[in-house]
Structure formats: structure tokens, C-alpha cells
Design a protein around this nucleic acid. Structure first.
Lengths: 98, 98
DNA sequence: AGTCTGTGTAAGAAGTTGCTTACACAGCGT
DNA sequence: ACGCTGTGTAAGCAACTTCTTACACAGACT
């Protein structure tokens, strides 16, 4: 989970995740969406995402296709849900004490 | 959201959030749970969490009491949900194509 | 075989983070 | 008023991130 949350902390990486959310995309295609950044920079972000299990990579001839792997967010989602449930619990208390 | 996700990326800060999840705790109380770390270090983490809107601070005489503010995670939760929903969509497609 | 296209990796510069120690300062108790 | 307790802030340092440019290398096309 640590890796996933660290990976997601970066706005560029989140943007990449949104990009590959619905369709597989090649590295070059993704890089082209970040005109202000060099291609290697994007490649490095892709590596971080892949290492964190947030995207899946597939080779297609020359290219590498990236796709979202939402399962990688499971632990992160668990953390957030755990925090949320605290509020729900307190809300319940508040309601009951009225 | 940026701030919240960045704040949550740090494991110490996540541990602090778990600590104040159910009960308000004083800064000193929290710091005491991290024996390997100096008190100012914890204080700085608390500031990051407060700035990100993830904890609420309240003064009680001498002390400052921190409590979880789960609402601060709303945007982060939204992001994760958006990513998750992608998988649900694809799962649906897969099921339908069988 | 040679070259072009698509991509990753290496090395290094610049900024950011997360700590430490030393200090500042408000509120409580004597 | 004075000192003690609880806490935040300042300054500085080491480690880590995130870029950049230069290079490496695999696969497709002729």
C-alpha cells in the first residue's frame, strides 16, 4: 500500500492513470499528452506506477501498452474507508445522543 | 486533493491518522507513540495533516487536541472511486461478451 | 544488413521532504 | 512573579524525487 499511495501522491502520475483508465495506451501516446515534459520523465513515471502495481504493461511489437490496474489501489481504498468509517461511527453516536 | 494525497503518502502520518481516528489526542500523547522519533518531528507531521485538512486542531488550555477529519479525504476517495469504476465497467463488458 | 521508430536506462542537477537540535512562547501552579 | 509543562518554530543537514540530456537497445521495414 505504501508504494501505491506514494505513487498516487504525484499529480502527473494521477493524470497518467486517468489517461489509461479506459483504454490501453502506448508509452509514446501517453508522453505526447504531457507537452511540458520530456518523454523519459513520463517513462519513469510509468515505471513507478508499474512497480506499485497500479498499471499493467503489455508488449505489442515495438510498443508497450499500459492499462490501469485498479486492484493496485485496494489497500489505499481500505485505508480511506477505515478513516471514513470513523466518521460514520461518530455520526451514529451523535444521532443517538440527540 | 493534492495536499491530502501527498500528506497520506507518508506512513508516519497515516499512523497518526489511525491514532486520532477514534479519539482526540494531545500532541504530546501522539508523539509518545513514536519512540523512535523526536517530538518536533511529530509536530511537523501534525502541521502537514492539519494544513491538508485531514485533522482538526482544538486548543484545550495548555494542550492541543487533534482529531481526525475524514472529510479531508473526500477528493482522494473520489479519485480512487473513479479508478475503481473503470474496472467495474470493464468487468461488465467482459461479462456481457461471454 | 542497415536504419528508423518506439521505448527504457544512466548520470547528474535542482528542488523537496523528513528528520535533528536549539530555541520561543503560552498557560498553569506555586 | 517564577518556573514547569506542553507545544510550535527556526535552521540546517542527509536522503529522496523529479526532472533533464545523452545513450542503449529491441522490433519493424526496406
Amino acid at each position: 500500500m505504501d508504494d501505491a499511495l506514494r505513487a498516487v501522491a504525484d499529480p502527473t502520475r494521477r493524470a497518467i492513470m486517468e489517461l489509461v483508465r479506459d483504454d490501453e495506451r502506448s508509452a509514446g501516446d501517453i508522453a505526447a499528452r504531457f507537452p511540458g515534459m520530456s518523454r523519459p520523465a513520463v517513462s519513469q513515471h510509468l515505471r513507478v506506477l508499474a512497480d506499485a502495481g497500479l498499471v499493467a504493461v503489455r508488449r505489442d511489437g515495438n510498443r508497450r501498452l499500459y492499462a490501469l490496474r485498479p486492484a493496485g489501489l485496494a489497500d489505499a481504498a481500505g485505508f480511506i474507508e477505515r478513516m471514513w468509517s470513523a466518521q460514520l461511527g461518530r455520526l451514529k453516536e451523535a444521532v443517538e445522543s440527540e
